[in-house]
């Protein structure tokens, strides 16, 4: 199979685009998809400071790599969850990438260690508050990433969510008719109120397979091992189902999610009304001061419960 663009030997075929690429042409394709996403969704400009949420996986490291190579000012934050046999490995991958790739661009890596800051590892915390590990992880990560972005005055926070993440989440919401989420599944979320950083997903146009291929071809050393806490999750099941559909009918995932985004832009209220709605709902948390709809935010509630249970 030859490269669709330059006719040399291809290294990856992309049935959804009816194309195949050699390494340089594939790298160009990936960068162009990210550039299009940033421009089309007005994610950020060339002078904005970006905080990338990194995990040691292919997506977040590929995102950091792409942003740096495209000349953006992108630092990163890693949250060490203290998962036995997993966190140490993923942290080592992130630190190695930061030393070898990011530092020459002048970018920095920050590390938040849950064991040190929250006083216990993720497994112990989730047991203390009687919540699923993935939910506890999500609460801590969202809180710490936003806190870092706001306190250090980053213009935007970027996550490595890809097409498969978004399409499977959309499928989950549709299957369960979680319609209150349907009109919120956008690749950008504005900094609608003080205390909330703007959040963007520049990889929403690229599939997991494409991002894994980008990492392999660009010698990005990422953690291949799956997080042991994610085993048996519904998200993985939805991804599997979508990939079966994609194999039989290439393009299913992007038609599903991009089609949804297109319809969303036709019906969604203007960003200003969304901001007004947010302002009406939010006020500072009594404990930490971050915006919340209740008196105390979910992170502080969780930490208070953990302290009582100890």
């Amino acid at each position: 199979m030859n490269c669709t663009k330059c006719k040399t030997k291809a290294v990856i075929d992309l049935p959804r685009h009816n194309a195949a690429f050699c390494t340089p042409c594939f790298t160009t394709y990936v960068h162009e998809q990210v550039a299009y996403a940033i421009k089309h969704q007005r994610m950020f400009g060339p002078d904005d400071r970006i905080l990338v949420a990194v995990s040691g996986g292919k997506d977040s490291l590929a995102l950091w790599d792409i942003l740096l190579k495209r000349g953006y000012k992108a630092d990163a934050l890693y949250v060490d969850l203290g998962i036995p046999g997993y966190s140490a490995k993923s942290r080592a991958k992130v630190e190695r990438f930061a030393d070898t790739v990011a530092r020459p661009y002048g970018a920095t890596l920050q590390i938040h260690t849950v064991q040190e800051e929250e006083g216990a590892g993720i497994k112990e915390l989730s047991n203390l508050v009687h919540r699923p590990t993935c939910a506890t992880c999500g609460t801590i990560k969202r809180y710490q990433f936003n806190k870092a972005a706001v306190e250090q005055e980053y213009d935007v926070m970027a996550t490595g969510h890809n097409l498969d993440d978004e399409a499977s989440r959309l499928l989950g919401n549709v299957l369960h008719w979680q319609d209150e989420y349907l009109d919120k599944q956008s690749p950008i979320l504005p900094a609608s109120v003080e205390g909330f950083a703007k959040k963007v997903k520049p990889l929403y146009r690229l599939s997991e397979r494409e991002l894994a291929a980008y990492a392999v071809l660009n010698k990005i050393d990422y953690i291949v091992e799956e997080c042991p806490m994610a085993k048996g999750s519904k998200m993985l099941l939805y991804k599997e189902v979508l990939n079966r559909l994609e194999t039989e009918s290439p393009g299913t995932k992007h038609r599903f999610y991009w089609g949804f985004l297109e319809k969303q832009t036709q019906t969604q209220p203007a960003a200003t009304s969304m901001t007004e709605k947010d302002r009406a709902l939010l006020h500072p948390c009594n404990t930490c001061g971050q915006p919340t709809t209740g008196e105390i935010c979910s992170y502080c509630k969780m930490m208070a419960r953990a302290k009582v249970s100890k």
């Binding site: 996550t159 998200m235 971050q290 992170y299």
Partner: peptide
């Protein structure tokens, strides 16, 4: 394939975007 966390999870409040609440 990776994932499964509340960070991205459908029906889980926040969807990778919120903080504190």
């Amino acid at each position: 394939i990776s994932g499964g966390s509340a960070d991205e999870g459908f029906g889980v409040r926040g969807s990778g975007f919120a903080a504190g609440t």
